[in-house]
Design a protein around this nucleic acid. Sequence first.
DNA 1: CTGGGGATCGAG
DNA 2: TCGATCCCCAGG
Length: 197
Amino acid sequence: MKKLERSFYERATLEVARDLLGKYMVHETNDGRTVGKIVEVEAYVGSIDAACHAYNNKYTNRTKVMFGKGGYAYVYLIYGMHYCMNIVTNQETYPEAVLIRALEPIEGLEIMEKRRRTESIFNLCSGPGKLCQAMGITKLQNEMDLCGESMFLLHGETIMPEDIATTPRINIDYAREAREYPWRFIIKDNPFVSKGK
DNA sequence: CTGGGGATCGAG
DNA sequence: TCGATCCCCAGG
């Protein structure tokens, strides 16, 4: 299977978000290799999106990675205890990213179970915080190049347009009009999607 | 320096 | 439904 190249990520964010469904995310660590199929994502577009950390093109130490080239990881700590994994999209100067919200576990299940302290397969990667724990993603992976050797994506399975559902994003009630933007994409009827909302 | 708030999760 | 827990950042 072929590794996704920079050109895949450096496109319009909503397109990248849709196209990420079905891709395999791989993380190589000392514990071993874990792989998950992307089944749920959300797009964040800094210039116009009140839910995005880089709303109004806000440039801070935390958001700066989103202003860089596509294909890098944006990982941040939320609620003081969980990490969220994003993939930076579009060209330089456009602060945009896609949040990975759920994976279907493909490989390294034993490693995931150990990290998550559960053997329930539907509870390993069915949420943004859970999948970071299962895949061994922390602040250390922030700003990592996904075109490198440690963490990267593979062309996994092709998802037909009719198998993709679109909804508003989860837990962004504070974001005023952006609350309703249909920027969450999931694989229809996939049992590994998060139980958000 | 200070304090309010958050792209979550799991227990009860 | 609610508490844990702490980084981030705006404001003074």
